[in-house]
């Protein structure tokens, strides 16, 4: 189903058209790897032909840089603007993936995004689910787009 390709294409499209930041994808992590050292995340549920959840996870400085670029303002702490910006990116990424699957007659619906933030947290997915994490490099470091899913 080429999840990785869809995620990379969608993310590149969002960053080049909406955020105007250069990003470079790195090889995906497969099963079982935890994303460590992230301080702000946004996640959104997907349902339909399969069920899943998409997330974007950023270390603090990367989250600030991305949301600052997207909103065109200086941001120096993780505040509501940063959470909203990442939630919107998660929403757009899920929307882009939905469109790409729709072209293959695989229908999906999106839930609403939620933000997770804090000094220390770990996000787990059900043990039996599939999980794909793609790192993207920006000037300030790396962020991660995660897709977990169960084929029904």
């Amino acid at each position: 189903m080429e999840f990785a390709k869809k995620i990379v294409e969608t993310t590149e499209e969002i960053f080049s058209t909406m955020i105007f930041m250069d990003i470079a994808s790195e090889p995906p992590f497969e099963e079982g790897k935890q994303v460590l050292g992230c301080h702000v995340s946004a996640m959104i549920g997907l349902t339909g032909s399969f069920s899943g959840m998409l997330g974007i996870h950023c270390p603090e400085n990367v989250g600030l840089a991305i949301s600052g670029a997207m909103l065109d303002m200086e941001i120096d702490e993780i505040n509501a603007d940063v959470k909203d910006a990442l939630g919107e990116i998660a929403n757009m990424a899920a929307g882009g993936i939905k469109e790409r699957f729709a072209a293959e007659n695989i229908d999906l619906e999106l839930a609403i995004p939620t933000a997770i933030s804090g000094k220390s947290y770990t996000i787990s997915s059900p043990t039996k689910s599939n999980r794909l994490i793609i790192p993207f490099r920006v000037e300030q470091g790396r962020f991660f787009i995660e897709m977990k899913y169960n084929l029904n």
Partner: peptide
């Protein structure tokens, strides 16, 4: 209406916020 996959978040200090005007 359908439900997505669940996810669990745990940690010493974190916040879970809703973003949309819900």
């Amino acid at each position: 209406v359908q439900i997505s996959m669940p996810s669990a978040i745990h940690g010493e200090e974190y916040a879970v916020d809703c973003l949309t005007d819900s």
